[in-house]
Design a protein around this nucleic acid. Sequence first.
RNA 1: GCCCUGAUAGUUUAGUGGUAAAACAAACCCUUGGUAAGGGUUAGACUGUGAGUUCGAUUCUCACUCAGGGCUCCA
Length: 580
Amino acid sequence: MESKNLDSLRHSCAHLLAHAVKQLYPGALNAIGPAIENGFYQDFDMGKWNISEGDFPKIEAKMREILPTWQKFTFNEVTLSEAEKLFKDNKYKVEMATEFAKQGKKLQTNDPGDFLDLCKMGHVDNPSKELQHFKLLSVAGAYWRGSEKNKMLTRIYGTVFPSKEELENHLKMLEEAKKRDHRKLGKELDLFVISENIGKGLPLLTPKGTLIKKQILDFEYELERRAGFQHVSTPHIARSEMYKKTGHWQHYKDVMYAPFGIDGEEYVLKPMNCPHHYMIYTSKPRSYKDLPIRLTEPGTCYRFEKTGELAGLLRVRALTIDDSHILMSEDQIEKEFKLCIELVKKMFVAFHLKDFYVRLSLADPSNAVKYIADNDTWKKAGEKLEKIVKDNHLEYKIAKGEASFYGPKIDFIVRDSLGREWQMSTLQLDLFMGKRLNLTYIDEDGKEKHPVILHRGLTGSIERTLAILIEHFAGAFPLWLTPVQISILPVSDKFQDYSLKVKEQLEDVNVRVQLNNDNKTLGAKIRETTLQKIPYMVIIGEKEVKSEKIALRTREGKDLGTVTISEFVSKLKAQIENFS
RNA sequence: GCCCUGAUAGUUUAGUGGUAAAACAAACCCUUGGUAAGGGUUAGACUGUGAGUUCGAUUCUCACUCAGGGCUCCA
C-alpha cells in the first residue's frame, strides 16, 4: 500500500477513535488526530474524565460497534461563521477554524456517519471495510499545539493496518524491539545500574559497561590522535562568571545545576566543555602558524534535565561528551569540517550504524531570544554549512530552530530500536565566541584576529551511544567492543590446569577472557555464556588437553571445530582490526 | 515540570484487609558431566519511603521518591 493511502487509513482511524471516545465520555472534546509514522494519535480534552490504558478494551469495543455504521466520508465546505456554529462546543476546532480562515485556507467538514468533524481531505473510501485492523497502544499527555503554556490534553496513540497480518507483524516487531531495550539488556548483561540513592538520571556503569566505554574512548583517542587532535583534561566545575561571559548563562541557565559557593566565589557544574578549552587556547599567544588548534577531551558534563525527560542512558543528567573545539582561521573552515565528517563516517562504520541521516540545524530568526543577535553572521554561517554538506555529498534535511545559540550545526541523527530518533555526532560552526571572549591569534600581517570555532561531538554522548549500541546489536557487540570476548568452559574441573594455561596465553595477547569454573554441565555453561552474548566459547576437555588445542564455539551456536591457540589468536586479531 | 502507568527476595513474576509464594541466580552437598538448563539442601523480602483509614494494611487513601510511555526540552 502506498504511504499516502496508509496515512489516509490511519487518519481515518483517528476519527473513529474520536467518535468512540465522544460517545463513551460525554463532554470529551477531540482536538487533532493525525497519521504518524507507524500509526496515528488523537488528542482529547477529557473534561471531567480520566483515561488510562485499562480503558482501551472498552474503547476498542466501541470503535468496532460504530464501524459498521460508517459510510464514505461526505465533505462540505463551510464558512467560518458556519464552522463556529457547528463546533460551538469544541473550542479547539473553533480555534483551528479561525486560524485556517485567517491563513486563507478553505474550511471543510466531513462526516462518515453521525460524526461531524472539521477536517481536510485524506480519508479512506470504505471505512467500515478498511478500518478493521486497528489497535490502541498507549495514552500520554500532550500540550495543546505543542506549547508548554497551553493546557495538557490526553493523547491516545494507536495503529491500523490494511490487513490483520500486517497489524500482527507490527505488534510483533514492537515486542521484539522491547526485548532489545537497552535498560532491559543493561540489567541482564550487567552493563549499568541506576541507583535511587545516587539519584535520577545518574547512571552508574558497572565493570562491563565501563569496558565498553573504554573501548569507545580508546577507539576515538586513536582516531583523533592520527587526525592531529590534542587531548586535554579539565575539571568538572568552573566559576559562574565564565558562563556569563560566554552567554551560556542567558541561554542555558535552565539546564545548569544551581551555583554553589566556594571561598566567596560562585561556581557551577560545567554543562559543556567549551569555556575550559577556550581558556587553554588563550593561555598563551597564538600565531596563525599554530592554527588549527584541535583540543579534545571526553568531558563529563552536568545538565539539569527535567525529570520527565530522563530516559535510561539516552537522556541523563551526567554525561560524557567526546568534545572537541577546533580553533582556526576562517579559510580553514571547510577543510576542518571535511576532516570531522571523515571521523564521523569512520565511527559509524566501526559501530556498524547505517540507519542515520544528516540534519542541517539552522537558527530560527523569528525566535530572537534563543540565539545571539546578529543576522548577517548567522546567514553567513548557515550558508557555509550548507555548502559543506553539499560538497561532502551528504544527504540532508534542513531544520530551522535547531541551531545552538552560538551557531548552526550539522547533526547526525540515528534511530533506536523503537524508531525514535537521537542526535549523535554534531559539528557546529561558531563565528561568535572567538570575538566575544577575545580569543586571538597573530595573523600573517602582524594583526590580531579572532579564531572561529568548530565544536565537534563525535558520538555526542558516550552514555547515549552505549544505549544506542546496546539496542543496535541487541547486546551482541562486535568482538572489538564487547566487554568479555572469550569464555573458557572446561568440561569438568579435571581440566583446570590446562584451562588456566589457555587463559594466561590469551591474556598475554590482550584479549578479554574469563574462565567459567562453575560446577555445572557443559550444556548449562554454554547456555549461560550464549545468553551473556560472549562471542567465543573455548571448550576444554580431555581431547583438547591431549592435543594441546582448543575447541571453539560461537554465541551464534556455530561449532568452529578444534584449533591451536595461535590459530585462534590470529583469527581474533584480524577480526578486531576490522572492528567486526 | 506536565498527563498517564507502575514499584513484592539479587532478577523475573504470583498473591491476599489477618505480616507473603515460585522460578532463576547465590551458598553448601552429591554429581565430573562433550556443545542451549543434572539432582538435593540452605539462606535470602519489616511487600519503594512516610503518613492516614482500620482492632489489624503488602492489599484501601494521600504525599514523597524512583522507574516507564508521551508532551515540552535536548547530547
